[in-house]
Design a protein around this nucleic acid. Sequence first.
DNA 1: ACTTATATGTTAACATCATTAACATATAAA
DNA 2: TTTATATGTTAATGATGTTAACATATAAGT
Lengths: 200, 200
Amino acid sequence: MSNYHHGDVRNTLLQQAETILHQEGPGGLTLRRLARLTGISEAAPYRHFDGKDGILAAVAIAAFDRFADRLQQVASQHADHRDRVMALGAAYVGFALDHPQHFRLIFGRERPPLDQYPDLREAADNAFDVLQRAVTAIDRRADMTLTEAATAYNRALAAWSRAHGIATLLIDGMIVPPADQDIEAFILGLLSEDLTAPSA
Amino acid sequence: MSNYHHGDVRNTLLQQAETILHQEGPGGLTLRRLARLTGISEAAPYRHFDGKDGILAAVAIAAFDRFADRLQQVASQHADHRDRVMALGAAYVGFALDHPQHFRLIFGRERPPLDQYPDLREAADNAFDVLQRAVTAIDRRADMTLTEAATAYNRALAAWSRAHGIATLLIDGMIVPPADQDIEAFILGLLSEDLTAPSA
DNA sequence: ACTTATATGTTAACATCATTAACATATAAA
DNA sequence: TTTATATGTTAATGATGTTAACATATAAGT
């Protein structure tokens, strides 16, 4: 008799986890609920994952991968350096707005510790590599001085933290985009604002 | 017989909560543990707070107030607008580095909902008002056009999201400040980096 | 084909958590 | 002194993550 789900229990659990995460955030995600939805006993998930953190890690890896894919695709569509940095920033914030729960999962506190899940660390590193390569690409010249290289790196960090701050404040509702303006334009405006220029 | 703690149970609970929050973050903060540390039964905290969220709200209010005070003090020490914006950004990030758990509490997901705790909302609004007033102060002129006012507001948002992004990425360990450089200088560099300028 | 090992499943239990109900007593007010 | 309020207790409820002990299906080895 084949009461076994064979290989699909793992995938079913992951899909249910994705659904709950999307609808209610990490708070509503409990192992017992996942087991109930999948139609297995409450201890069964432990045969497929390393407890709750194991499931969260798997979901986070998928989220990191989709994030990286989106960034990579946007980066490849812009040849000009400045265009690319701006488009990347917009894509970064766009991902956060489209998938706020995934964004929170991969950057928030319920993300399992990277040093306990090597695959998760790899997925995270990969996403940030995509980002950093795209931002610093044009500055990667052989005849670069050390300070020039440091400047390029700092630029990447600055661009990253800018996008990250906007994304975080937006999905937490602390910044509300103006209703009369295109959101994309609003984001690009915030990204490119030059604080060093004289005011008015 | 005076077995009662009188008025100090509430304060003791809050202090224990602060201590645990500081040492372990919100994850280690449980009502039962607070009760144990304070030497009262597990149901007693409910006589002083509206459950766990009530305690978290009280701690968050105190954190917001300290945050606002620090920003206010820094803002008052700089007359020049650009200096003030930069100093505020550094203070913002500095607070996050000095009190990462408090920073996470007031901006993170375990912060109780603002609309259920009016005092918490007030504390939050106050902190952001300090920030926004300081950043836009010099641009608050009577003869300002609408677009000029919008630009000033956008500048405030840009400065805020910049500081917020740097703070978040730093306390999450996603950005590691260079060991050979002063952290303050590193932060100021990131804040003032102009992405619109030509590279190299 | 038979035996064995591994993968997958189950039920039951444990410890912890937030919260509430029912009850008790200290302090303050009338 | 009586009464009301504030503060405390114990016990219970229902949820959670996790593990142990046990059962069976599939795969592997001989």
